[in-house]
Simulated assay, not measured.
Amino acid sequence: MSREQLRQLRRDPEQFLHDLYNSPMIRRPDGREVPRLPAHDFWISDGAFCGRIGFRFQRGTEELPAHSYGHIGYTIVPWKQRRGYATQALRMILPVCRAEGFSRVLITCDDDNEPSRKVILANGGVPAGTVPHTTRPGHVKLAFWVPTEPG
């Protein structure tokens, strides 16, 4: 989560959740507003807030709009990182993806984000090339297909 998102959450949790889930548009990091995709979002908790994970999709197709890097995005607050929360959260959201009819999902991570790459690989991620990084010149996103069936 960004520092600004954490500030908004602490300042007014109800408004933060309302804006997060009820707006028909979302603001991209580059400032553009784009239509919100159907999604399943979950809070990650160990009794206290650890982060969130979400599955966004278009019904009936693996395809995603150009502004979406992948089907799944997750973030863990800095003080809870490297405890296995993201790996477990990804494992737990895959049956949700399968229930929506997906046999695999596309997940990307920054080329220099080794912890996220390990999370994806631990869940069966298969490298699928790279995509341009729209907000970090000189960097790319690593793309992986992750099967939604265990094993």
Results as ranks from 00 to 15, higher is better:
96 V>S: 12
95 P>L: 08
75 T>L: 09
103 S>P: 02
77 V>R: 13
73 G>V: 07
100 E>I: 08
89 A>W: 05
102 F>Q: 05
89 A>K: 05
96 V>Q: 12
96 V>D: 15
72 I>Y: 01
99 A>H: 13
86 A>G: 03
98 R>I: 04
87 T>D: 00
100 E>F: 13
89 A>H: 07
89 A>R: 03
102 F>A: 13
77 V>D: 01
94 L>S: 09
83 R>F: 09
100 E>A: 12
101 G>Y: 13
80 K>V: 04
84 G>P: 01
88 Q>G: 00
84 G>T: 06
85 Y>N: 00
96 V>T: 14
93 I>K: 13
91 R>E: 13
72 I>A: 07
101 G>A: 09
76 I>Q: 00
90 L>F: 06
78 P>T: 11
74 Y>H: 01
90 L>G: 04
77 V>A: 06
99 A>R: 14
85 Y>D: 02
100 E>D: 11
79 W>I: 14
102 F>Y: 14
103 S>D: 09
99 A>P: 04
97 C>I: 07
76 I>W: 08
81 Q>G: 02
82 R>I: 14
93 I>V: 14
99 A>Q: 15
82 R>G: 10
103 S>E: 07
98 R>H: 12
90 L>M: 06
99 A>E: 15
100 E>S: 09
82 R>T: 12
90 L>T: 03
78 P>I: 11
98 R>Q: 11
94 L>M: 10
74 Y>N: 01
72 I>F: 07
101 G>V: 12
72 I>V: 15
102 F>M: 11
90 L>Q: 02
75 T>H: 08
71 H>P: 12
92 M>N: 13
96 V>Y: 10
79 W>H: 15
87 T>L: 00
87 T>Y: 04
98 R>K: 13
72 I>W: 04
74 Y>D: 11
77 V>H: 04
103 S>Y: 01
90 L>Y: 01
80 K>N: 06
